[in-house]
């Protein structure tokens, strides 16, 4: 069991999401960064779809009331156990009664996942463990300060970690976000596409599980709209009459009435969700065929992620404590002070 000390901006239970319910107006919800979500479960030897706690923007703290193996995944950085042990993100760790765990905000990304070995003891709502922000139907799946959350089977595993190569290759902002344009946009709005793809956009702090607003030079296209509400999905890029794009995320409404430009493909959604506020991006059109290939390449790379058991040391260097994790075969060494340095054996 854990007791929540602070939740940060929003912490909630998530799994892959809720499907087959859009006909009732219920959106998919589910983890924003599917790959980091799956990684947190794999580090705990769980099924990939076991419910984890998704933490947006860090600031999450809890205390453990019994022993368990837990994992934290997400952007490169560290989390802190008992105020002085800095453990690299993408590690599992054994925690004892009265241990505390804190996930600080991180300059490399937004979204973290916290899994425990065997999973949390919670009930599905409408066939899923995913919290749905815009309604009150899943309030039991929102993490609340002061509340306790139980484990299914409190026990421990070997502590393991992975390097951050997958995250660095696929989930770090490279300045380009792919988009599958609507067929109508490709057929009759090539001029718009040219200007759109040459515009710098910036993510804003208007970010929620429902969507994110971008800022940048306002588009002069589609300023008079008379759209009727129609289908939207995770990643739909809408352009309202004000000329600034909105990208819908997992908890968005199931139908929308603004002009649809296209959709961010599945291969880009984890990276997009991890974008920090004020990140600069440009959009680049790709075919759906190419985006499927890119997604499958990501899956292949993900399947190759290796896990290494590690030993932890807190070293005192010139009076400062430095945390060191060393893998069994010395192939990965992680050193965390206020930054994480990964040292690789040649």
């Amino acid at each position: 069991m854990i007791n929540i000390i602070s939740t940060g901006t929003l912490s909630s239970f998530q799994d892959f999401g809720r499907f087959g319910k859009k006909k009732f107006g219920v959106s998919n919800s589910g983890c924003l960064d599917k790959f980091s979500f799956m990684l947190s479960n794999l580090l705990c030897n769980n099924d990939k779809n076991e419910a984890s706690i998704e933490i947006i923007s860090g600031g999450f703290k809890c205390i453990f009331l019994e022993e368990i193996t837990a994992s934290i995944t997400g952007p490169e950085g560290f989390f802190i156990v008992n105020e002085n042990k800095k453990i690299k993100i993408n590690s599992s760790i054994n925690l004892k009664k009265n241990d505390t765990l804190f996930i600080p905000p991180n300059k490399n990304g937004n979204i973290f996942y916290f899994s425990v070995y065997g999973g949390f003891k919670i009930k599905k709502i409408l066939d899923s463990y995913s919290y749905h922000q815009p309604s009150d139907i899943t309030d039991n799946l929102k993490i609340v300060s002061g509340y306790n959350y139980s484990f299914k089977k409190p026990s421990v595993l070997k502590e393991r970690f992975t390097n951050d190569d997958f995250f660095k290759k696929h989930l770090v902002n490279n300045g380009i976000i792919n988009i599958n344009y609507e067929e109508e946009i490709i057929e009759s709005n090539q001029k718009f596409i040219k200007i759109f793809e040459n515009t710098d956009y910036f993510t804003t702090n208007q970010f929620s599980r429902q969507g994110i607003r971008l800022t940048g030079e306002k588009s002069n296209f589609f300023t008079h709209q008379n759209e009727i509400s129609s289908e939207v999905s995770i990643g739909t890029l809408q352009l309202p009459p004000n000329g600034l794009p909105i990208i819908l995320l997992n908890d968005s409404q199931t139908t929308g009435g603004y002009k649809k430009i296209g959709s961010i493909p599945k291969s880009e959604l984890s990276k997009f969700s991890q974008l920090k506020s004020e990140s600069k991006i440009r959009f680049k059109g790709v075919s759906t065929e190419d985006s499927v290939i890119l997604f499958n390449q990501m899956v292949e790379d993900f399947e190759l992620i290796g896990f290494n058991a590690y030993s932890f040391y807190n070293l005192s260097v010139n009076g400062a404590l430095i945390s060191v994790q060393i893998s069994e075969n010395n192939s990965i060494i992680s050193i965390a002070n206020n930054e994480v340095f990964n040292v690789y054996k040649e």
Binding site: K23, N28, S229, S233, T254, K266, V292
Partner: peptide, 17 residues
């Protein structure tokens, strides 16, 4: 993954794999 309708369309979300 999902079948739903709008005013004038049927929408099918599917797993491309």
């Amino acid at each position: 993954l999902d079948i739903y309708l709008t005013y004038n369309s049927v929408v099918i979300d599917y797993d491309f794999n």
